[in-house]
Amino acid sequence: MTPSFPSASIMALHPDLEALLDMVEIATATGKRPVIHQLTPAQARREFDDASAALDLPPEPLARVEALLLPTRDGQRLDARLYAPRAHGDGPALPVLLHFHSGGFTVGSLDSHAALCSSLAQRAPCAVLSVAYRLAPEHRFPTAAHDAIDALAWLGSHADTLGLDPARIAVGGDSAGGTLAAVLALAARDNPALPQPCLQVLCYAGLGGRTDTDSHRRYGQGYLLDTETIEWFYHQYLRDADDRGDWRFAPLLAPDHRGVAPALLVLAECDPLRDEGHAYARKLADAGVPVTVREYAGMVHEFLRMGNIVADAAQAHEDIADALAQAFGSVPGGPHPHMASLNSAPAASSR
């Protein structure tokens, strides 16, 4: 049975988000809020981190928050941060989510996603390893993809020493971080030396590499993430036009999606990237991959990190944590009934 997917339609913005966007529009028009694609990358990074602190709740207090350095293939080291709900050595090995932050491959940091990562660690519960992959334009494509693959390889060989379970690794991220998680699922399928993820969590991920979908036309201006800003991000990251056709930038274009990890796609209804999320879900389902789609009505891009604005952010955190718990629970004792049923059941949606 082929999974069914919600049809595209325009619904009202959540009233709290509508109020936020009204304030953003006024601040932009009066020059009090900079337009991100008119800034330098360094300025954009400061603006992104400052906005993150204002929109999101404080990080959850956890028993373990540990700074790490991860080696890369070219001899550099990546900052990373491990979140865990209990101290190292206190109990059995924890499953772990390898997480990559949003920001168009150009902005974003460990700090901008501290609240999201700590929330998922607390709710699942599991460990979350957040990786600060190298950013563009200083490090253009495919550096971020290489960093993600290197991080997964390192985690697989060092999980035991960190008190983590190498057999229960999920990969995930939001926006550009979701792109990297999708890339990892494909790369791991093709490379048995890499840990095989038990779940890929793709939150409003960039998957198609284009800005010509219906959701781009509907929501590409005035809904927080503008198409012009997306193209600015792509310009920072990509080396040339040919990179747009590379599946490591646009996983939707991969020639074969069979055999990748089961997927949870978290989508925002009023998001220019929504349609490519649905397209990717269909691509996975057609390839026989278990897939669940959660589309949140009235939400905009980045809503997972707007806990100060909308309660739906906390509900989405719970939904992701539940999917992680089920996926992690399926590994030691065989497929979890929920995950196993996704091959034939219609994809779920919160709409």
Rank of each mutant, 00 (worst) to 15 (best):
26 I>L: 14
238 L>T: 01
280 Y>Q: 04
246 D>S: 12
114 A>P: 00
44 A>N: 07
233 F>N: 06
13 L>A: 08
94 L>C: 00
234 Y>D: 05
205 A>C: 06
194 L>G: 05
105 F>C: 06
107 V>G: 00
339 M>G: 10
215 S>C: 11
257 H>P: 05
19 A>I: 09
64 R>I: 04
131 V>D: 02
343 N>W: 09
117 C>Q: 06
14 H>I: 13
175 S>Y: 08
161 T>P: 00
116 L>I: 09
341 S>C: 13
10 I>E: 13
164 L>E: 02
9 S>Y: 13
268 A>Q: 00
106 T>N: 04
176 A>Y: 04
306 M>N: 06
39 L>R: 10
213 T>E: 09
9 S>D: 12
287 A>C: 07
349 S>G: 13
210 R>V: 14
251 P>W: 04
213 T>Y: 09
254 A>D: 03
113 H>V: 03
42 A>S: 12
160 D>Q: 14
321 A>P: 01
150 D>E: 09
334 G>W: 08
310 V>T: 06
110 L>Q: 05
319 D>V: 09
267 L>N: 02
32 K>C: 14
338 H>G: 05
127 A>G: 08
75 G>N: 12
219 Y>Q: 06
201 V>I: 14
241 A>M: 10
328 F>Y: 05
210 R>G: 10
120 L>H: 00
82 L>E: 03
318 E>K: 07
90 D>G: 06
312 D>W: 04
158 H>G: 02
108 G>F: 00
302 E>M: 15
268 A>D: 07
38 Q>I: 10
233 F>V: 05
287 A>V: 06
182 A>Q: 04
180 L>D: 01
123 R>H: 06
92 P>C: 10
278 H>M: 13
81 R>S: 04
89 G>T: 09
182 A>F: 01
313 A>L: 08
152 L>T: 01
45 R>E: 10
88 H>K: 12
261 A>L: 07
156 G>R: 01
77 R>V: 15
95 P>G: 12
228 E>H: 12
65 V>I: 12
304 L>V: 07
326 Q>F: 08
196 Q>C: 12
239 R>H: 13
69 L>F: 10
234 Y>P: 02
15 P>R: 14
59 P>T: 07
339 M>S: 08
231 E>K: 15
25 E>M: 14
70 L>I: 15
241 A>R: 13
268 A>K: 03
104 G>E: 08
67 A>C: 09
288 G>A: 13
116 L>P: 01
28 T>Y: 09
80 A>M: 09
37 H>F: 14
198 C>W: 03
191 N>V: 13
161 T>M: 11
26 I>Q: 15
182 A>M: 01
12 A>R: 14
131 V>S: 03
35 V>T: 14
303 F>R: 03
40 T>I: 09
189 R>L: 07
304 L>Y: 01
308 N>G: 15
23 M>Q: 14
332 P>D: 10
313 A>T: 13
221 Q>T: 15
162 L>P: 00
46 R>L: 15
149 I>N: 03
204 Y>F: 14
281 A>L: 00
129 L>S: 00
171 V>Q: 03
27 A>C: 07
293 V>K: 00
145 A>C: 11
79 D>K: 11
121 A>S: 15
124 A>F: 06
46 R>F: 12
12 A>S: 14
78 L>C: 05
319 D>S: 12
309 I>T: 11
229 T>H: 06
275 D>R: 00
336 H>I: 11
118 S>G: 13
160 D>F: 11
5 F>E: 09
